[in-house]
Write a protein that binds this DNA or RNA. Sequence first.
DNA 1: AGAGATTTGTACGTATGTATG
DNA 2: TCATACATACGTACAAATCTC
Lengths: 142, 142
Amino acid sequence: VIDPDSGWPAWRQLADQLRGRILGGELQPGQALPSEERLRQETGLSRNTIRRAILTLRAEGLLLVDPPRGTFVRQPEEVTTVDVSAGTVSARMPTPDERREFSVPEGTPVLVVDHGGGQTSTYPADRVALRVTPGDPPENAS
Amino acid sequence: VIDPDSGWPAWRQLADQLRGRILGGELQPGQALPSEERLRQETGLSRNTIRRAILTLRAEGLLLVDPPRGTFVRQPEEVTTVDVSAGTVSARMPTPDERREFSVPEGTPVLVVDHGGGQTSTYPADRVALRVTPGDPPENAS
DNA sequence: AGAGATTTGTACGTATGTATG
DNA sequence: TCATACATACGTACAAATCTC
């Protein structure tokens, strides 16, 4: 169902279709995607093009790869809520160092809380949410 | 300076080197990266491998591409500060729809504020930071 | 234990299209 | 007009880890 004349790149059409099947619930969290070879047969695209689409969805945080077992729909992680009563919150993609340090998977941002005075806390955004509280709370992070 | 026997993929070594030159200030924001052909000559790698490295840095939010003018080191955007006095803040990668709606560039997360009662606000994380305030403030976002 | 199939990763090459300068 | 530079897309080959028989 990929149309080369649609004006959209084939890899993008495939990524859109797979994303739709994931967000639509047809492909459930934890479930394996069809293998690259299977997708190649189904779509008629080259393996490179298949991989380009999958790479995109990995960067979007929708897929995780466990080679050579397969490619899987991301499971939502258990979210820890951290209280914040003052400071500035921003988000960005982590550096590779930060990805190792905080075990941040592909396609996952980090939340950065600037407490002022050069004091910041960094959290993996797939496992941490920040609760904004009017009171004054404790803190725990690096 | 790419070593095929280092145990690391060539594209990753190149990405690491380019990232280092960007974070180290050798490649300044707004500055153009060497062209793919130039990098090919300098490294001896194939163009596919060069592009794999650049794609990685794009997903990290370090590079923006303006084809076929060139590939450029991302400029920090002007940051608008939005006050938040209550709610839960999280971050994730935007869907393609959200990227269009909020003009979110590649490799940039969105900040999502859950005000409770199904009310959420979404902001592009490269242009918005959230100030956590003890008071009670106004709100403006979709 | 071992052989073979499966699946993802890496890396190469080639060709063509399109927009810019 | 021509060269440059990024995008798309095809193909091939081999490696490494896992799974199955």
